[in-house]
Design a protein around this nucleic acid. Structure first.
Lengths: 166, 166
DNA sequence: TCTACTTAGTTAGCGTACTAAGTATATAGG
DNA sequence: CCTATATACTTAGTACGCTAACTAAGTAGA
């Protein structure tokens, strides 16, 4: 006889609860940050790209290639193309063909893009501090240590997944 | 004279570094989990819904209404509609009109959906344990405590954002 | 040299998140 | 009773992530 009901709930290991807490965190951070970036007419992903380009600019580089942006942001090439398309449409970045390697395009901030970065940077630290205001400086340090350690492990795990898939 | 260059990089407060570590974590978890769910023909969001429905089923409920699902998963009504559309297409869930309140539809697992939940639950804990294998049991507990505390704060902050926007 | 492989970027198509706005039903206040 | 508000869900349109597949260009090996 086929039972139409589910068997009793499996024992919930602590890792699963931790994982759900982590997913909750992701959702909450999205809800807090998305409207914040919206005020500047951009998205979180767009800000991440603008910030990477600003850093490159300050390091004296002419620009970044798309693949470098993708590596830093942990997103795949098609996602980079999409975000750059929209940033270029808003005239915040430009894609200049490279003479050295004609396959790639060097992406850099426009004057308008640099102005927006400046404007955003003025209040950015303050807003991020609000996000973590629920934790003491000590707790923030502990969290940082744990996340870094977890990220190291996840990087390894992600590489394994990548290989086994391809 | 207008400077075409950016002013020097603002001082990077620890919170900003922590925030970037957190974003990194989000990207890495996505890269590890998405291929895992893919093996079962579903997505992470779909699993979250199936799991919520399984829990409701075990609690003896006929089903959940869409808004309850959205509340648990921290997603808005249109996202719930979309995920349910695809789950219904795959015959994993069903939307039954409620007689008590004709506005809502009670969402529940189909037999096929229950079978998939069972199948997935068999190996789920093991996979999640892999995700956190980079941390000791002690560290996992600490991380859990910190995330819970942060989530409490973020919930409050998200509510404020919601109110100020509307 | 010429083929094979690699790298850079794009396009196509899908799933999931959002806001804004619309429909239908329920409930409350005058 | 009947209008106003609130609730439940959907539709429309946008952004961002992915895989698969494609073009173009550089690189290496027979």
């Amino acid at each position: 006889m086929i039972t139409p009901s589910l068997p009793p709930s499996p024992i919930e290991v602590p890792e699963v609860k931790l994982f759900r807490a982590l997913l909750m965190q992701v959702g909450l951070v999205r809800r807090v940050m998305t409207p914040y970036f919206r005020r500047f007419g951009i998205s979180g992903a767009q800000w991440a790209v603008l910030r990477a380009l600003a850093r490159a600019h300050r390091d004296g580089l002419e620009g970044l290639k798309g693949s470098e942006i993708g590596d830093r942001l942990l997103i795949r090439p098609p996602s980079v193309t999409g975000v750059l398309d929209r940033l270029e449409r808003e005239k915040l970045v430009q894609r200049l063909p490279s003479q050295a390697d004609r396959r790639m395009k060097l992406v850099s901030l426009t004057t308008q893009g640099r102005e927006l970065v400046e404007q955003l940077e003025a209040g950015h630290a303050g807003h991020i501090q609000q996000v973590f205001a629920g934790l003491s400086a000590q707790e923030q340090m502990e969290l940082r240590t744990l996340i870094d350690k977890l990220n190291q492990h996840l990087t390894q795990l992600a590489d394994q997944v990548e290989k086994s898939t391809s």
